[in-house]
Design a protein around this nucleic acid. Structure first.
Length: 265
DNA sequence: ACCCAGGGTAACT
DNA sequence: AGTTACCATGGG
């Protein structure tokens, strides 16, 4: 399957490097590659648009990249607020991916009190050690594949204190104590409390999973960077124009504050 | 040597 | 309900 997306509809560099995903890497030739759902996807920018190639179906790719959503509509809405308008100007082209729930859960458990390069490294070692070999790399291991794993057996990941959190999440998903599929139908508050039953999952990790896997756009993960933005620009909370799409606004703010160190109003 | 990183937990007031 | 030390690891 080959898919071409208009350049104005996506900025793959920002989309893949804005902290929502950890497995997309850019090769020396400029091509982005990742194993998603057990199959490789490549994406590259050309003058004619962003070319996406994979053995996945068109439907899978459209869903993954959220191609049936007009992000220009969000940007128009957010532009009622001067700070967000500035953030949109800087971070336009970011799209919220629909990632696999288990992979996203483990990824953001690993993310706590950690930095993005090291998160990627731990996940890479998880895939190399326990994932199935796939075309061009290793798939992210399923919960079933990790069944029964202990924190000690996860030592090669060098995940530190997070190893037992990973082990607990695997155990819960395999026992059915946590049914990730059921989260799709839950409203935000219920879904958050449900995921927080997993040891090592608090408000922030839960909201990241709800936004980046379950596509709950009203989730608003507050990490250290977003807290800084809130303290400086929104001491009384987010503006009305973000209602229902707080998570999209969050990504523009996160990417802008991190990239530039500040948002220029 | 010290501080920080897409935080959470447990043990305190 | 709101604070605080501690948690492994690695880079600046």
């Amino acid at each position: 399957m080959k898919l071409v997306i208009k350049n104005s509809d996506i900025d793959i560099k920002r989309t893949f490097q804005c902290g929502q995903c950890f497995r997309w890497k850019q090769d020396a030739d400029g091509v982005f590659r990742a194993i998603v759902g057990g199959k490789q996807i490549t994406a590259r920018e050309t003058a004619d648009g962003v070319v996406v190639e994979s053995e996945h179906s068109r439907g899978f790719l459209e869903n993954y990249f959220d191609l049936n959503t007009d992000y220009g509509e969000y940007i128009r809405r957010f532009s009622a607020d001067p700070v967000l308008k500035s953030a949109c100007g800087h971070s336009a082209g970011i799209r919220i991916l629909r990632q696999e729930p288990f992979e996203t859960l483990i990824g953001f458990i690993i993310s706590q009190n950690n930095n993005i390069p090291r998160i990627s490294g731990i996940i890479e070692r998880l895939c190399e050690n326990f994932g199935e070999r796939a075309d061009g790399g290793f798939a992210f291991p399923s919960a079933k594949r990790l069944s029964g794993i202990t924190a000690e057996e996860l030592a090669p990941l060098r995940a530190g204190f997070r190893a037992r959190y990973i082990a607990d999440a695997v155990r819960r998903v395999n026992s059915g104590e946590t049914d990730l599929e059921s989260v799709y139908a839950m409203p935000l508050g219920n879904a958050r409390e449900y995921l927080k039953q997993i040891v090592g999952v608090g408000d922030k990790v839960a909201d990241c999973v709800l936004l980046f896997a379950f596509h709950k756009l009203d989730a608003f993960p507050k990490d250290v960077w977003v807290r800084r933005v809130m303290a400086e620009y929104y001491p009384n909370g987010l503006p009305e124009c973000t209602r229902g799409a707080e998570g999209v606004a969050q990504q523009y703010l996160f990417d802008s504050i991190r990239a530039d160190g500040l948002i220029k109003v």
